[in-house]
């Protein structure tokens, strides 16, 4: 069951056959590859998304995971209700100011490596409700987003396409450079606060400056 991706140059079965490092009787059982490749190959096929829906887009997310579109074909179906067990957050819907602190807290609780997909117009940039007083203009103002999926709501096919794009991104990562193995790579996002309006604590100096009467 050699996977297409393992048949990359230097790893194909033919070359292994001729590799002097591999004994002849193991020729059909051993693959030689790089650590990055095997690491990424394993990760990208077993993403555990967080079971977490915000608005209308969540309904399409549920449909994508259901029998007809069957996300399980890609190894993505194991939705975990606990952020501790998840490594992908799908922000599926309108992000409101009241909800932002919880979303950021959930993100911080996810173990690294963690990824974020912004699903739909709302999570991407505010969507139809952008002008509303309780709506934030996209989750990327708070969290690092890996993949944006346009649509209102994106169709299940579009969501799957987003997943594939994320796989492509994961494939390109290298153990040597990924942030979570670097010293100080624990990028915890400060949780916004609810005051007279939503307060992004990273910008408190600017807020204090500009509100000075």
């Amino acid at each position: 069951m050699a996977d297409a991706e393992t048949n990359l140059p230097g790893t194909s079965a033919v070359e292994i056959k001729n590799d002097p490092r591999v004994p002849a009787e193991l020729n059909n059982n051993v693959f030689i590859t790089t650590l990055d490749k095997i690491y990424n190959w394993g990760r990208k096929r077993s993403m555990w998304p967080m079971l977490f829906g915000l608005a209308c887009c969540a309904i399409e997310m549920i449909c994508t995971a259901a029998a007809r579109y069957d996300l399980a074909r890609f190894g993505w179906e194991l939705m975990r209700p606990s952020p501790r067990q998840a490594d992908l957050m799908i922000v599926s819907g309108t992000v409101t100011k009241k909800m932002v602190p919880q979303i950021v807290r959930l993100y911080n609780q996810m173990p690294q490596p963690r990824y974020v997909i912004a699903m739909g117009a709302c999570a991407t940039g505010g969507g139809p409700f952008k002008e509303g007083y309780n709506v934030v203009s996209g989750i990327d103002k708070f969290l690092p987003v890996d993949v944006y999926i346009p649509g209102c709501p994106p169709r299940p096919e579009a969501l799957m396409h987003g997943f594939v794009k994320l796989q492509e991104k994961i494939e390109k990562q290298s153990l040597r450079t990924v942030s979570w193995y670097q010293p100080g790579g624990d990028d915890v996002v400060p949780v916004p606060m609810l005051g007279p309006d939503m307060v992004d604590l990273r910008r408190s100096a600017e807020i204090a400056e500009k509100t000075r009467a």
Binding site: K97, G126, G195, I207, A213
Partner: peptide, 15 residues
Amino acid sequence: PWADNVNYPPNFNPD
């Protein structure tokens, strides 16, 4: 002013 969908009363100090 904040390039964002927020508004604060005058003299609001988040700290």
